[in-house]
Simulated scan of single mutants.
Amino acid sequence: MTDASKVGLALAYNCAQVLYPQVPSGVSVTGRQVVLRRGWLLPSDLFAAQNIRNDTDFVTVTMAPRKMPEWAEPLGRPWRVQQKVEPTVGVVVTGATVEIVFSGTATPVGVVAVWLDDMPRGGEPSAAYAVTAQDTPETVAAALAAALTGGVANGAVVSVPGRVLNGYAGGYGQSVRVTRRQAQLYRVSIWTADTTARETLASVLDTALAEQSWITTLDGCEAQLRFQSVEDVDTMQNEALYRRDYFYELVFDTLQVQWASEMLCGIGTLSAGEGLSAPFGVLAPGAANQTVTAALDAMQAVVAAQAAASAYPGLGVDHFGTVVALGS
Rank of each mutant, 00 (worst) to 15 (best):
F320M: 14
G316S: 07
A305L: 12
Q300L: 07
V61N: 10
Q228M: 01
A223M: 05
V233N: 15
A127F: 08
L201N: 08
W79I: 05
L241S: 12
R244Q: 09
A223L: 07
D253F: 00
E138K: 06
L218V: 11
R177G: 03
F252Q: 05
G170F: 02
T88F: 02
L46Q: 13
I52W: 04
L116S: 11
A301C: 03
G110F: 00
V251Y: 08
L41V: 08
G170Y: 07
A16P: 14
N14G: 15
Q224L: 12
V303N: 14
A127W: 07
E262C: 06
E70V: 14
A240P: 00
Y129M: 01
R80A: 09
V59K: 12
W191G: 09
L296I: 07
T105Y: 01
S271Y: 02
I52Y: 01
R121G: 03
A72C: 00
D245T: 11
Y248H: 10
T291K: 03
D135P: 13
P125V: 11
L315A: 08
L165K: 06
Q228A: 06
K84F: 01
Q256S: 05
E274V: 11
Q258V: 13
V18G: 09
L41Y: 05
Q212F: 02
A202M: 04
T94S: 15
F320T: 15
T97Q: 12
V85E: 14
T94I: 08
A311Q: 08
A133R: 07
G173I: 07
R37L: 01
A193G: 15
W71N: 12
R121P: 05
R180G: 02
V111S: 04
S213L: 06
L116Y: 08
R244T: 11
D117H: 06
L250E: 01
G151W: 02
V112D: 03
A284K: 14
A278Q: 15
A64P: 01
G123L: 08
E222Q: 15
D206V: 05
L75K: 13
G220Y: 00
E249L: 14
T207Y: 05
M63S: 10
V292M: 05
